[in-house]
């Protein structure tokens, strides 16, 4: 899932300066699961904003709403009747959701309430780790299911480097060396022959270096 972290409250307050009525819009997708932009978090942020503005003697009216997903036009359309009522929309979705809202409601400012941080998963409730960098050319077949792009600090394709000590990365003793994990895993699978192959220099055009990307299922195009 896409992981996001809520922006510092002061930053959100600055964005809300001068606004009298806003909608705080949650997303029922990834950011609900990672506890940063769902129904509950909409209520928390709205309460905080109302209290801070009341305290300053400058109250703000807030419409609290959460839709199934903000990265899908059919759900974004559902707030069509509310958007004209407000001065701005504070989206609690990832960057994709914010932009889908902004694209649909061209005449209305849509502001982000989260910083979109990475693609990952939850190790346990409330504890999220990065696992994918969306490089567009998956190498997990060669590396025992452990990604050298996302999990090696240098994204090395032929590791480990000299900064690997006792299975940890030189950038932080709490960070596992991805290549140590890969070797351990390949050994346990009896697939060390894959490690012997030298991987060629990466083609980063499938990553962001090729500009914005899109994916089209032809059979769904009408």
């Amino acid at each position: 899932m896409v992981i996001g972290e809520r922006k510092p409250f002061d930053e959100i307050m600055r964005m809300a300066e001068g606004l009298k009525k806003i909608m705080v819009l949650g997303c029922g997708g990834c950011v609900t699961v990672c506890l940063t932009g769902g129904h509950d978090e909409v209520r928390v942020l709205s309460s905080q904003l109302r209290m801070a503005r009341d305290k300053a003697g400058n109250p703000i009216e807030i419409i609290e709403k959460t839709i199934e997903r903000q990265c899908d036009p059919e759900y974004v359309d559902q707030v069509e009747s509310i958007v004209p009522e407000v001065d701005a929309v504070f989206s609690m979705a990832c960057g994709a959701g914010v932009q889908f809202m902004a694209e649909k409601y061209t005449g209305k400012p849509v502001y982000p309430s989260l910083n979109t941080t990475f693609v990952g998963g939850s190790k346990k409730e409330g504890y999220y780790v990065e696992r994918c960098q969306t490089c567009g050319e998956c190498k997990l077949y060669y590396t025992g299911g452990i990604c050298p792009i996302a999990r090696c600090s240098k994204s090395l394709l032929n590791g480990p480097c000299g900064g690997s000590t006792k299975g940890k990365c030189e950038i932080d003793p709490d960070v596992d060396c991805a290549w140590q994990l890969i070797i351990d895993r390949l050994k346990s699978l009896g697939m060390m022959d894959r490690y012997e192959d030298i991987m060629p220099a990466n083609d980063w055009r499938t990553n962001r270096d090729g500009g914005p990307r899109k994916m089209i299922r032809e059979d769904f195009q009408r």
Binding site: M51, D54, A56, I62
Partner: peptide
């Protein structure tokens, strides 16, 4: 509480 008491009725409705 430092919250502006004058606005309490409004927040009651909002909540």
């Amino acid at each position: 509480s430092p919250l502006n008491k004058k606005n309490r009725n409004k927040t009651d409705k909002a909540a």
